[in-house]
């Protein structure tokens, strides 16, 4: 199936509109999340409780027509609760593997930082290689495979901050923020969001989604764009404002997301605005400020201002 570019844009808009019916006034974040998924990346949503993190994840899963499972992370969750376990069956006299929630197309890991690092790292292999090793046997995960994780700000009580290695596995990190007054009013006046969620019908089939994922790789990223990307990455490494610069994996993620963003905008090539649009989401959670300040949030904008586009 070959979808022309203008059709792509129409399809993308449909998806965004569908999710926007449950998450009001957050089109930009929805687009970013979509771009992240199209770039085959995993998404981390960080915000205070009750801001709509889970709603965004569920809405996306429904609109994309993916099989969906959810794990609520708690402090006593064990890796086996995620990956699955072999259980002895008396009838056959054998051990039979009962797959865990990770064996689905879209895994929502809710409040991932409430569990211990041991359990958090059970997701590492699944996210990086798309497979799970349980009891010495490696089993492939369904395709496509996404993880959408939500977490509370690390300053909240009862949280285990994600280690850098785990954070780097997440392609992008979003934060939703409070809705604007008009959107909030519509939310308050509207019906129950749970019911609205059920009303979202899938806009894509799994095959179509995979097709779009392939199409992302074919979006042209010209020499000039690669140069700009390299300048950005170099700046974070040499300017001394950050504890560590961006990793090569971050560079790849940045390029892939920029391509996805260009595709959502209905273009077949990447322009600097695409890079700038996805940069805060992709780079923000990887750049820790060099001084006492905890995160590099505002500084990421500063990088964009300082590095010449041309």
């Amino acid at each position: 199936m070959n979808v022309p570019v203008h059709n792509t844009r129409k399809v993308m808009d449909t998806i965004v509109q569908a999710v926007a019916t449950v998450l009001l006034g957050k089109e930009d974040q929805i687009r970013l999340a979509l771009a992240c998924l199209l770039a085959r990346g995993h998404l981390l949503i960080e915000d205070l409780p009750g801001m709509g993190k889970t709603t965004l994840a569920q809405g996306l899963a429904r609109a994309l027509g993916l099989s969906f499972s959810r794990i609520q992370f708690t402090s006593d969750l064990l890796p086996a609760d995620i990956l699955g376990i072999s259980v002895y069956e008396r009838n056959s006299g054998e051990f039979r593997f009962h797959p865990g929630p990770v064996f689905s197309q879209l895994l929502l890991a809710d409040e991932i930082n409430r569990t211990t690092p041991k359990t958090q790292s059970a997701l590492l292999e699944a996210m990086a290689e798309g497979q799970a090793t349980v009891e010495g046997e490696t089993r492939p995960l369904p395709r496509p495979f996404f993880v959408i994780a939500t977490q509370n700000p690390v300053t909240q009580a009862g949280t285990f901050p994600l280690p850098e290695s785990q954070q780097d596995r997440f392609t992008a990190c979003l934060s939703l923020g409070y809705p604007d007054p008009a959107a909030e009013r519509r939310l308050l006046e509207g019906g129950d969001p749970r019911r609205l969620l059920d009303r979202i019908s899938p806009c894509l089939s799994a095959e179509q989604l995979q097709h779009f994922q392939h199409a992302v790789s074919r979006i042209t990223a010209s020499e000039a764009i690669i140069d700009y990307l390299q300048r950005l990455i170099q700046y974070t490494r040499t300017q001394g404002e950050f504890e560590h610069g961006l990793s090569p994996r971050a560079g790849l993620a940045l390029l892939q997301c920029a391509r996805a963003w260009a595709m959502i905008a209905g273009r077949h090539y990447v322009v600097p605005e695409d890079v700038q649009a996805v940069f805060p989401a992709v780079a923000g959670h990887r750049l820790q400020g060099a001084g006492v300040t905890a995160t590099g949030e505002g500084r990421v904008e500063q990088v964009l201002n300082a590095v010449d586009v041309l």
Partner: peptide, 9 residues
């Protein structure tokens, strides 16, 4: 044009 300003912007 500001250094960080993309042509479109």
């Amino acid at each position: 044009r500001e250094p960080g300003e993309a042509p479109g912007d």
